[in-house]
Design a protein around this nucleic acid. Sequence first.
DNA 1: CTAAAACCTGACGTTGACGTCAGAGGCAAG
DNA 2: CTTGCCTCTGACGTCAACGTCAGGTTTTAG
Lengths: 120, 120
Amino acid sequence: MRIGELATRSGVSVRALRYYEEQGLLEANRSGSGQRHYRESAADRVQLIQMLYAAGLTSRTIADLLPCVDAQVSTPESRARLTAERNRIDEQIAALTRTRDRLDAVIALTEDPAGCTYRD
Amino acid sequence: MRIGELATRSGVSVRALRYYEEQGLLEANRSGSGQRHYRESAADRVQLIQMLYAAGLTSRTIADLLPCVDAQVSTPESRARLTAERNRIDEQIAALTRTRDRLDAVIALTEDPAGCTYRD
DNA sequence: CTAAAACCTGACGTTGACGTCAGAGGCAAG
DNA sequence: CTTGCCTCTGACGTCAACGTCAGGTTTTAG
């Protein structure tokens, strides 16, 4: 498949796909005329990249992690890297949970103003 | 307290505090010479702001939400806004959880290569 | 009184993940 | 062959949340 179809399938822009390649996150075979051709698995790869971006990882970090996802190579460094990012995400989840609970408290106050002086 | 102390206490930079004021997130009384003076509660306010930033909210959105946190005003719009952001955070938590689980799977593969051909 | 430290207001610089535009080539249909 | 769409490579633009620097005033410590 060519870049336009991959973009449509995975829901990201053509520009983003070229950017991923530039950052070493996504490979493509080139036709004689220079056009990119992707395998079916590229869509899954793009989904994974998007997940990691959404988790706050940078291109550089993703580029470091992906080879070890692909090859399932497990040097001590790569394991440390993976678990470090995993733990970062865990902390992020905890922080978000606290934020959500805080917002819930605010919502409860504004919806059911128990301590309020007025009453309908 | 002045801006430097607030910065130290809340762990953000002086520049950030001025920026928050510029964005309408944080108020300060001014002394005759123009220096900012903050109440004790400002530290909590900064914490809240940081939480919301960390949850991916923009200055504009935070500026919209904070008054309703302060005054506990509850217009239908503000309630909708609050719950919308709350739900966004919930979805974000869910996405992060999926990402973490995905990373866990990768870690499990690299740590305990059951399907690997080599054995020590 | 004086030097250091803290504070002020602009205003320009930074970073990451793209958006967007220009100019040129490639490809299936009629 | 040409029309229309897709693709290519640069290269500059964007946006948010600050960082940083300049040049000047204020507060504090000794």
